[in-house]
Nucleic acid binder design. Structure first.
Lengths: 247, 247
DNA sequence: CGGTGTGTTGAAAGGTGTCAATGCTAGTGG
DNA sequence: CCACTAGCATTGACACCTTTCAACACACCG
């Protein structure tokens, strides 16, 4: 089954008509190699993308030359879903690994809004979820120690990856360098390194060789007070899902 | 003219039909007093709100007891616009000042998606803008000094308030305590106080008596490297705005 | 084989936090 | 009208988490 169908199906049962439209969205995809810049800040927003495989990062290059990574996109995530209603992108997007992404034209999204209100609403749900992740990121950076920032982010990623079948119970492939972790969490690479060492010595997690090993998830969640409820799926409200597809 | 009409009109010309629907959204409004909790984390999402007057804050209470303010809502802003597609709220919302807010039922938003695609898309635009502000907040907290965090936030708020006529060229009412500023920017109240003093001594801005005075906007923008372009309005794409209202 | 990116470690500096005390203003109640 | 309190702003001294600077190890790769 096409990933996009699976993604939307999580929220309600699709009609045949809707399946056809969604399949049309992902008819073609592009293979891109690691470090490819997909969207550059200031670019006009013409496409949104569905990540089929690989990791991407959404980031801002600040005027002082520093880098702030805002979020990571993993398979199943949309890149810049709402970008299509904006004139130009305020951030940049880059592939971290070799990736396969599926470009979706602005026009195709608008078509959903015109004629497929349930799909349009579901897209809003994806957007709402992105917002939740951004808010969680703010709370991480704003009010937690380096130790907890890293723990919390790793737990979140583990949960997200597990949902799409890319993590087993205690490990996953993690193509993020310590420097990128630093640029994500508002730290320095050096301090990330020291903190990772401490996490390892404490028997909580081990990040090495592009792989995260969660050594003691229970204690990790307890010490970080990680509450994964914000990652749960929602269901699109009945009163619209039960509507006929077209008005 | 009703504020909500003005808000949507900024993006395209409304049909009479659309005006009627929008007016219906804001038919009634509630006066609430300062410090009222409007939404509490964990609540089911039944309403979104349009702020007509006053300031509100969106925040998270963290498990360790600390507070992270995520964003501020000023008149013309929606509170929790996408909340309606979620099962429960992940954050809390509280009035900072006495405020007038206009509750909008979930069902009313869904109605827009069913029958008023242009309005639904515009709502996405508002959501996209919220996302941009959240991302900017991440960059502020993650990669800037206390000095620049405060400057940047104040410049952003000044711009936003100016847009809705609540700031003149160099000052605005600012009902935010130093402690709240600290909880917004990931600092301590003590350090906020010292930093404000430094900003004042440097002749950049003065915050006192619930009011911000911008003393030297040019230098402030230069030192902070503040680029307000992310605050500009976008226009909803022609190809949907030129569509008939109903399909 | 040298170059480059990444990880690792040490020492020192510094921005920010912590603790604690004081002043100020508005509001409350006697 | 005056205590009295509560909330907020302000300041000093000191501790500490994090940064900065620098050096070195290691793996990968052309």
């Amino acid at each position: 089954m096409d990933p996009i169908i699976r993604k939307f199906s999580r929220h309600f049962d699709l009609s045949d008509d809707e399946r056809t439209v969604l399949n049309g969205l992902t008819a073609k995809s592009n293979q891109i190699s690691a470090n490819t810049v997909i969207v550059s800040a200031g670019d006009p927003c013409v496409y949104t993308y569905l990540v089929q495989s690989g990791w991407c990062m959404i980031y801002k290059l600040l005027p002082d030359g520093s880098l702030q990574i805002l979020s990571y996109a993993i398979p199943g995530d949309f890149l810049d879903l709402f970008g299509v209603v904006l004139n130009r992108s305020e951030h940049s997007i880059q592939a971290i690994t070799d990736s396969r992404i599926c470009p979706i034209r602005e026009e195709q999204i608008l078509e959903l809004f015109r004629n497929y209100p349930r799909l349009a609403l579901t897209i809003c749900w994806f957007g709402a979820r992105d917002q939740i992740l951004l808010r969680e990121q703010i709370a991480r950076i704003g009010r937690q120690s380096a130790y907890n920032r890293i723990s919390h982010l790793i737990l979140e990623l583990h949960d997200r990856l597990h949902t799409v079948g890319l993590a087993d119970n205690d490990s996953f492939i993690f193509p993020v360098t310590q420097e990128m972790l630093a640029d994500t969490l508002g730290l320095t690479p050096v301090h990330v390194n020291r903190t990772l060492k401490k996490l390892r010595n404490n028997g909580l997690m081990d990040i090495s060789d592009q792989r995260v090993h969660i050594l003691d998830k229970h204690r990790l969640m307890e010490e970080t007070r990680f509450d994964p409820s914000y990652l749960e799926d929602a269901v699109v409200p009945d009163d619209i899902t039960s509507q006929p597809v077209k008005n």
